[in-house]
């Protein structure tokens, strides 16, 4: 595992320069403001850019609008002000968003929201079928995706009878089966045991697409992302004012003198 110090080094790079060197932004938010009816704005004049190949982590307290950020990108909720451009095109209408949605994969926080089909195979094949694949093609894609995630033999399992970790990995399979160009991952490590978490890290490490990952856990973020942003006052902070904090963790034989590699 990389030392948390590395995080500071990476984060001190100027994200603007980083973005300049790569191709056109995939996701570009400018001055986006959003609030739920009757409440204060959750996001205020937010700017955010994701470029090809970037793996961005977002760490922020509860209620700071991280999930809302994803829902805005997918066009599930509409901003009060500002502009959302995806793949170089400014989007406003539902129709424009629905065309772009198939190219972005959103992994929901709660797998029970994502898995609505009775069996695993049907759920994973749901996306490809909607993209116009034939039944045979969709089933083949679903089987391949499941196999790639080490979920062989899960095809006929009943979705609600899966364990929490299995549900999460199957949810990821349903998103990956659509061959998205970007992934938005909403606290994917939440509620997973150490083994499943390691498996998830391994899967994410093998992916060669850009993603944004929301998490509460710095350790996990440093493992699977290259840039870590924080959110404060409805904005994403990309400067080096990252608040370094100490954290405690438990591990076997922790009471004996030891080194962190």
């Amino acid at each position: 595992m990389r030392h948390p110090n590395l995080l500071i080094e990476i984060s001190r790079e100027d994200p603007h320069n980083y973005a300049m060197t790569t191709a056109t932004p995939i996701i570009d938010l400018k001055g986006v403001t959003f609030g739920y009816p009757g409440g204060p704005p959750v996001l205020r004049d937010l700017d955010f850019t994701l470029c090809a190949g970037e793996r961005i982590g977002v760490i922020a307290p509860n209620g700071s609008g991280k999930t809302t950020l994803f829902h805005l990108i997918m066009g599930l909720v509409k901003p009060l002000a500002g502009q959302i451009s995806i793949f170089g095109k400014a989007l406003r209408e539902e129709k424009e968003f629905s065309e772009v949605r198939r190219r972005i994969g959103l992994l929901f926080q709660d797998p029970d929201d994502q898995l609505f089909s009775p069996t695993v195979l049907e759920d994973v094949a749901f996306g490809p079928l909607n993209l116009g694949k034939t039944k045979a093609e969709a089933a083949a894609i679903a089987r391949q995706t499941l196999a790639a995630l080490g979920l062989n033999g899960f095809e006929d399992r009943i979705t609600f009878k899966l364990s929490g970790g299995e549900k999460r990995l199957v949810s990821l399979a349903t998103v990956l089966a659509m061959e998205p160009e970007v992934l938005l991952l909403d606290e994917p490590e939440n509620g997973l045991d150490i083994r499943t978490r390691a498996k998830l890290s391994e899967i994410l490490g093998k992916l060669d697409i850009a993603y944004i990952l929301i998490s509460h856990e710095l350790d996990f973020l440093t493992n699977v992302t290259d840039l870590i942003y924080t959110m404060e006052d409805g904005r994403i902070r990309r400067d080096e004012e990252l608040h370094v904090h100490q954290h405690l963790h438990a591990h076997p034989l922790g009471s004996r003198p030891h080194r962190h590699s």
Partner: peptide
């Protein structure tokens, strides 16, 4: 829950058509 499920379905290109494998 219903709203989130509907969102998840729309995110995966749901077009109100039922497919059976």
């Amino acid at each position: 829950r219903a709203e989130r499920v509907q969102w998840a379905m729309r995110c995966r290109g749901f077009k109100r058509k039922f497919y059976s494998l």
